[in-house]
Structures are given as structure tokens and as C-alpha cells.
């Protein structure tokens, strides 16, 4: 157990180090010159001269441009460890950290809502579908959700956007609130907020349901063959008790690990969904940064995504053996 924990933490550190180092190498090798970008910007609008100078100074500091590369590398590590990701070129006085802090709650909310909905619906669908008396409609639904899962989130997002914002214009096309509306703690604000979240949440949840339905059905079929279920049936327990307490309870835990496995894939997908709906999360920040060549923001967001995903996977991996005593030392899910 201890050994596993240590190995897992080492892999996390290794991942973060690889990400940071790859980032450093890419920045040094790129033909894109952020400084030239800044100078061009300074020339085009005279008022940001001061800001430009600070950015250039930051860039010099971070990369110690006149020093040999090992020195540059350590300077860069030091800057990152102190949490300094640099300035945004597009919104100058704001640092990359500021921009990220504004976006993170939106992304996190979107992700958690979508994943929770998909987890509940998918597992329910899969569990019910594994039951012997499952109606044909239910099986059909599982197959439907499975084929939908084969399509990436961003394509689902485009289709949903067209269907519910253009063809039947019942939902807004994007953003998080109606432009110009006042935001207070009223019901109207809450409804406006929810209406804007439905399509982005829906695109991700819809794409995930099939994934969980299918694996839940698989796990359930093995669980339902177990002897203790037979015993329960012989004992005369009600079908519902058997299903919920004997079946689902034992099948649901492995599903939690499945949650962690595709985290990277999930986040990658969410970036694009946010960009399509112009939802004010990290993905949209990244999309806008790409359009304006806001280089430090691009780098900062990419590093942030990598570190947070690895951290989330680390937490799930470490917490999982605590909830499921069946998994202890050694081989977990390999």
C-alpha cells in the first residue's frame, strides 16, 4: 500500500516535470517570437508602452536570455515554483494567474455538473439494462447512447447548438449570462445562468453517458452471476433489494476508477466545447489566447491543465483503495 502510494506520487512528479520541461524546450525552439509580438503591439497602440517594457523585462528574467541554457532552465523552474506564469499580452495589467483564476470556477462547475449527470444517468441506464426483465426500449437506449459516445464532444456541441439555438431557438447560443442583464441573487438570474449552461453541460454529458452505461452493464452482468445473488434469491429477497443492495452496490465502485481513466480525454474535449459556446472557462481563455497569439496565456493554460489533470488522477488513485477494500496493495486496474 505504502509502496503503491509512493510510486504513484513519483509518477505524478515525473509527469509534472516532463510537462514543464517539454514546455521549456518548445518555448526555446519555437520560431514564434513573443517579444516581436509585444513590440508590434506597442507600435500599434502607443498607450501600452509601459506594459510592454514590463513584459519584456519579465521575459528576460524568466528565460535569462543571455545566460547558457542550464541557467535559463533553472530560472524558469524558479519562476514557475513561485507561481509566476507571466503577463497576459492581450489584457496587459492582468497576469496569466489572474486570467486563469477568473476562468477556473466556470470550467470546474461545467465539468462537475456534466460528469455527475452522465455518471448517474449512465450507470442507471447500464444497471437497469443488465437486469433480466429490462424492456427492449432500455436496451435500445443503451445502444443509442453508445453510438453517440463514439462522436467527440465538440461535434455533439455543434449539433446541439444548431438544434436548440437556431432550429428551435429556445436556448442561448453562448456565453454565461444574457449580455447587459443584471446579476443578482434573484430567480431570474439563476434561470438565465442555467439556460446558458444547458447546452455546454448537455454536450459533454451526452457524450459520456454511453461510456458509463456500457461499462456498468458489463460489470453488472458479472456481478449478477455471483453466488451471493443466487443466495439472496433463494432466501426470498425482493428483486428490488437484490438489484440495488446486492447488484448495483457492488458494481458501482469499479465505475469510479473508470472516471479517472479518461480524465485527460475529457478535459481536452471540454476545452473545445467551451470555445464553441464561448463559455467563460479555461477552454475559452485558451481559444481566445490562440486567436490573439497571447503566448504566455497559452503556455500557462496548458501547464495548468496538465498539472490539474495529473493531480486529479493522483487523488482518485490514492483515494480509491480507501473506498473499495477489495483493492489493496499491488496491482490496481493494470
Amino acid at each position: 500500500m505504502l509502496r503503491r502510494t509512493i510510486i504513484r506520487i513519483l509518477i505524478f512528479c515525473l509527469t509534472v516535470w516532463v510537462a514543464i520541461t517539454v514546455n521549456f524546450i518548445i518555448v526555446r525552439a519555437t520560431p514564434v517570437d513573443p517579444i516581436a509580438g509585444i513590440l508590434g503591439r506597442m507600435a500599434s497602440k502607443g498607450q501600452s508602452v509601459q506594459g510592454g517594457a514590463e513584459i519584456v523585462a519579465f521575459y528576460r528574467d524568466t528565460f535569462a536570455l543571455d545566460e547558457p541554457w542550464p541557467v535559463q532552465y533553472f530560472m524558469y523552474l524558479r519562476q514557475l515554483l513561485s507561481g509566476n506564469l507571466g503577463y497576459s499580452l492581450a489584457y496587459f495589467p492582468a497576469t496569466v494567474g489572474d486570467v486563469l483564476l477568473h476562468a477556473i470556477p466556470w470550467s470546474l462547475g461545467l465539468l462537475l455538473t456534466a460528469v455527475s449527470i452522465a455518471f448517474v444517468v449512465g450507470n442507471l441506464l447500464g444497471a437497469l439494462g443488465s437486469w433480466r426483465r429490462a424492456p427492449l426500449v432500455l436496451r435500445g437506449l443503451i445502444y443509442l447512447s453508445m453510438t453517440i459516445s463514439a462522436v467527440p464532444f465538440y461535434l455533439l456541441a455543434l449539433i446541439l447548438l444548431y438544434l436548440f439555438a437556431f432550429m428551435w431557438p429556445i436556448l442561448p447560443t453562448g456565453g454565461s449570462f444574457t449580455v447587459g442583464s443584471t446579476r443578482d441573487f434573484s430567480l431570474a438570474t439563476a434561470i438565465d445562468f442555467i439556460r446558458h449552461a444547458i447546452l455546454p453541460v448537455g454536450s459533454i454529458a451526452l457524450g459520456l453517458v454511453g461510456f458509463w452505461a456500457l461499462s456498468m452493464r458489463g460489470v453488472m452482468t458479472t456481478v449478477l452471476d455471483e453466488d451471493y445473488l443466487m443466495y439472496g434469491r433463494v432466501k426470498g429477497l425482493r428483486e428490488r433489494t437484490l438489484f440495488l443492495h446486492y447488484g448495483v452496490r457492488n458494481a458501482i465502485l469499479p465505475q469510479v476508477t473508470a472516471l479517472a481513466i479518461d480524465m485527460g480525454q475529457l478535459i481536452s474535449g471540454q476545452v473545445l466545447v467551451e470555445a464553441i459556446f464561448n463559455y467563460p472557462g479555461v477552454g475559452t481563455v485558451l481559444f481566445n489566447a490562440l486567436r490573439t497569439s497571447d503566448y504566455f496565456v497559452i503556455q500557462g493554460v496548458v501547464l495548468f491543465i496538465i498539472v490539474s489533470v495529473s493531480l486529479a488522477m493522483l487523488v482518485v488513485d490514492l483515494v480509491y483503495p480507501l473506498i473499495d477494500p477489495r483493492i489493496t496493495a499491488g496491482e490496481a486496474g493494470r
Binding site: A19, V22, Q265, I267, V271, I306
Partner: peptide, 8 residues
């Protein structure tokens, strides 16, 4: 597998 490849 841990690194979200799209980010890279």
C-alpha cells in the same frame, strides 16, 4: 496517459 495530449 496522464498528460491531456490535446494540451500538448
Amino acid at each position: 496517459l496522464t498528460i491531456p495530449t490535446l494540451a500538448v
